[in-house]
């Protein structure tokens, strides 16, 4: 039911690796290393690898996911280099694939979304791939 969204892409959104947000995120995963926050002893502070969760990737037209009942199946990150605190990142998302398989709890939908972060010159900094599993019960409850 999401086949028609394959290849659809969001608009690009400008984000900033905000210092305060990095600190709060590092605290929330109990990762309290000064490399994230200490400006005096590090020439540059970086963000934890799963920090891109925080960014705004814009919205993909026609991809209306329910906000409940989704299962996060897989998550992959690829980095060309770490994220630097206070730098600007241009983010967008794209539907990479959608397919359905029958399993023990009915027909499951697998939605693969790719997300990208680039520097202002358009060079890739990171990409991520997320596989979301949408159960039949959830899809039945949706009105598309």
């Amino acid at each position: 039911m999401f086949e028609h969204t394959i290849g659809k892409r969001s608009e690009k959104v400008k984000n900033r690796v905000e210092r305060g947000a990095v600190k709060k995120f590092a605290e929330a995963i109990g990762d309290l290393h000064p490399i994230y926050t200490d400006e005096e002893n590090y020439s540059r502070n970086i963000a934890p690898p799963t920090f891109p969760r925080v960014f705004d990737y814009g919205s993909i037209e026609e991809l209306n996911l329910p906000n409940k009942g989704l299962i996060h199946g897989e998550q992959n990150y690829h980095y060309e280099r770490p994220l630097f605190v206070e730098e600007e990142i241009i983010c967008y998302a794209e539907v990479d694939d959608y397919y359905e398989r029958s399993g023990k709890s009915g027909n499951m939908g697998f939605l693969k979304v790719k997300r990208y972060g680039e520097d202002p010159e358009g060079r890739l900094i990171f990409s991520e791939e997320q596989v979301v599993i949408i159960t039949e019960a959830v899809r039945k409850g949706m009105t598309v």
Binding site: G30, H33, E74
Partner: peptide, 24 residues
């Protein structure tokens, strides 16, 4: 997944996490 990555935090002065793939 965020927590698991911190095993590598002590080594960020030697490099960085280039790929991080997880199945839940």
């Amino acid at each position: 997944m965020g927590n698991l990555a911190k095993l590598f935090t002590p080594y960020y002065e030697e490099g960085f996490i280039q790929d991080y793939s997880i199945r839940f």
